[in-house]
Design a protein around this nucleic acid. Structure first.
Lengths: 227, 227
DNA sequence: ACCTGAACACCGTTCAAGT
DNA sequence: ACCTGAACACCGTTCAAGT
């Protein structure tokens, strides 16, 4: 009669098997907590209790891993039932949701720029936007360029906002103060327009800034579509 | 009578003294030849025949060095005599020139984004744009946001174009081909709008794309200014 | 097939020491 | 004050070896 043994291979708790999904989960957690700059292959591996080399059995390289994260994030963008009569408002709501998602995921925006989306999340997102604009009756050529311009704008804004959010609030405060002083001290004879505009420029604020660009772009698309 | 000596301290050719300017020159040369990714403190130092530590006597850090390069590049943007009656066309010409400058300097665009300009080159550029829009009679608030939106758009486009230009033309060709095939193979029942739009989306081309966005933004600014 | 330790070829920046 | 060699604390990725 064989001696009683603890269940075979269970002397220590089984290591969670690595997988594309588990790696992406760990990466997303780091992104949300610390942002894109803190996302390293070594960090992801450490979070999974292994070494960086182990990741390469499931993931092509760091770029590949980031593209998985981007696709997951983009899938979170809200896509309400298209209502062609309200396409301008729906396009804006879509852009607002995308901005929120990109900022929340530790400035993934830097990665979305220049990326041609091929993952299911991004494809569903593009499909939604194209559908809305087509049902609204915009010309195909305008739709093609608009569907390219809109995410570009949102990504650019989110990218910048991610950079600014990198520092602590105190550093941020100090930086803005230094900028303000620098601009206030400029010679009016050399930069008359700039000096005259300093108060107005200093009033520029994140949300309003985003909404202004959105207004401009949606109004511009509507104008070009009507031509 | 003292022996004839070669000029004092000239036994070897004198090392070119380091300076902020010399360091920036070397950095700009690397940028134009190899792009932003290839710009390293070690590379700049090597080009100047010294070690990386030597740079830190003249330059705060890498970010500081890049900001010098950005300012130099922005100073190259064309700024014709403002003609308020033609402000829309002049804004577009300004944007085209900025795009060209950013792309030519090895994708400096990634660095201009999120940067509040304080150097003389950037200030002159902002001053010009503000002056044009003020003389054109746009409302101050629209000017403030427009002067922010326009460089953001140009930088975003240049940033993406810099990414695409990173590979060789053959790699580029292969990548576009793969994308085309991927999109052509998508199930029409899952992505009806996307599949229907593939031919139109594939016709999207760099210059036309940039011009479309420019048209949209300038038309949008004009529309908001008229309200 | 999957996982691993160790190593390779890089980074930006700091520091003590020189001149 | 300026410059330097060496070192520190990181990277992404590869590779031979294990299972």
């Amino acid at each position: 009669m064989p001696p009683v043994r603890p269940r075979p291979g269970r002397e220590r708790p089984a290591r969670r098997t690595l997988s594309r999904e588990a790696i992406a989960d760990a990466a997303m957690a780091i992104l949300e907590r610390e942002g894109l700059d803190a996302l390293t292959m070594r960090g992801v591996a450490a979070a999974l209790g292994t070494g960086p080399a182990s990741l390469y059995a499931h993931v092509e390289d760091k770029e590949d891993l980031i593209s998985i994260c981007v696709d997951r994030a983009v899938a979170e963008v809200e896509m309400p039932e298209p209502d062609p009569a309200r396409w301008q408002e729906q396009v804006k709501a879509y852009a607002r949701s995308m901005r929120e998602v990109l900022v929340r995921h530790g400035n993934l925006a830097r990665a979305t720029m220049g990326m041609i989306p091929t993952g299911p999340g991004a494809l569903a997102s593009v499909e939604w936007l194209l559908g809305l604009l087509r049902e609204a009756g915009l010309p195909d050529r305008v739709i093609a360029y608009a569907a390219d311009l809109l995410p570009l704008y949102v990504s650019a804004v989110a990218f910048e906002e991610g950079l600014w959010a990198a520092g602590t609030p105190e550093e941020m405060e100090a930086y803005v103060g230094a900028i303000r002083e620098h601009f206030a001290g400029l010679p009016a004879e050399r930069y008359p327009h700039l000096v005259a505009m300093v108060p107005e420029l200093m009033r520029v604020e994140g949300d309003e800034r985003f909404e202004f660009g959105l207004d401009v772009i949606v109004a511009g698309i509507a104008a070009l579509a009507a031509k």
